[in-house]
């Protein structure tokens, strides 16, 4: 019996497509799940700028507290007859704005403070670290109340409160790992060929703590959404008529017996968004770490 073999010629395009497929398959599932949830969240926010089922704060007094499935109101209406889907879409916009601004500022400032302390003179490190610990010990909600008393309730107050709350977190989480990396041989090697501390921190420490910072960022993002909702719930955050998931939750607590399902919608929106950021952070950390990733993305 003759043995026939088929030789298939692969073009460079075939090779690169198969390599891309292999890389995409190697990406962690959490990256896809988190990415999908967050993409959905961002998509809803973007759509809310051009379309919502009803105009903002449009009252339908004839359809107050309509249950889910009512014609024209898929998820029902609230006590004032406002469409729940419209409220959720507009609330998402507010949540995204506050969480993006507060997380980006807190991460930047906190990481900068953490790296500066880790790279500072050893005599200064301990008192400066204790100062950060003091910032961590301050109760965030109370701080927000104080800021609100000074500035008045609103989005700016909520954003400033979240930033003040999260800067010590970012700084404290950065100090330990940065100090560990500064004690490693490759940092000493960098000094041995003439690199100075700022270069070492930027090119050796920062890239090596980036997986941690990505996870921290995603956790802080999720926490910012929760805190914004909590502040709005307490009446310190965004004020009527601007929609917010936290304020929506606050308004539904008095309807717990009459319409318990109303509390479910903003609650599930907060949970899914928080979960999405956590999954995305975990997936990114794995994908960007050359030692964990089999995808070669790094």
């Amino acid at each position: 019996m003759s043995d026939t073999s088929t030789i298939t010629a692969h073009t460079p395009e075939d090779v690169s497509v198969s390599r891309l497929r292999k890389r995409l398959r190697a990406l962690p599932i959490t990256l896809y799940l988190g990415g999908t949830l967050i993409s959905l969240f961002v998509f809803v926010v973007l759509v809310s700028f051009i379309w919502t089922p009803y105009p903002a704060n449009k009252l339908n007094l004839a359809n107050r507290m309509a249950p889910p499935g009512t014609p024209g109101f898929l998820l029902g209406t609230d006590r004032a007859g406002r469409d729940v889907i419209t409220e959720l879409m507009l609330g998402a916009r507010n949540s995204l704005y506050v969480s993006v601004v507060s997380t980006v500022v807190a991460m930047f400032v906190g990481t900068l403070i953490g790296l500066s302390i880790a790279g500072s003179n050893k005599m200064l490190q301990r008192p400066l670290t204790r100062l950060v610990d003091t910032g961590l010990a301050l109760p965030g909600i109370l701080t927000a109340m104080v800021i609100a008393a000074k500035l008045g309730a609103g989005n700016t107050t909520a954003t400033i409160a979240i930033i003040a709350w999260q800067i010590p977190v970012a700084a404290r989480v950065t100090i330990g790992p940065a100090r560990q990396i500064l004690a490693l041989d490759y940092v000493e090697a960098a000094y041995s060929y003439g690199r100075k501390k700022p270069y070492v921190i930027r090119h050796h420490v920062l890239p090596n703590i980036s997986p941690l910072l990505i996870v921290l960022g995603s956790v802080m993002f999720a926490a910012a959404i929760l805190i914004e909702a909590a502040l709005a719930f307490l009446g310190v955050g965004v004020q009527p008529p601007t929609s917010s998931w936290g304020r929506f939750l606050n308004e539904t607590q008095s309807l717990l017996e009459a319409a318990p399902y109303l509390m479910f919608f903003p609650g599930i929106a907060i949970v899914l968004t928080t979960l999405g950021f956590n999954l995305l952070g975990d997936g990114l950390r794995t994908a960007l770490d050359p030692q964990q990733s089999r995808s070669g993305l790094a």
Partner: peptide, 25 residues
């Protein structure tokens, strides 16, 4: 250095690690 695993930055390719001293000095 004593421990080669700790003396090379895990996030730099070997090419980058080798070029660093020349770039610096």
């Amino acid at each position: 250095f004593q421990n080669p695993r700790r003396s090379l930055d895990p996030r730099m390719t070997i090419r980058r690690s080798l070029s660093e001293p020349i770039r610096a000095l």
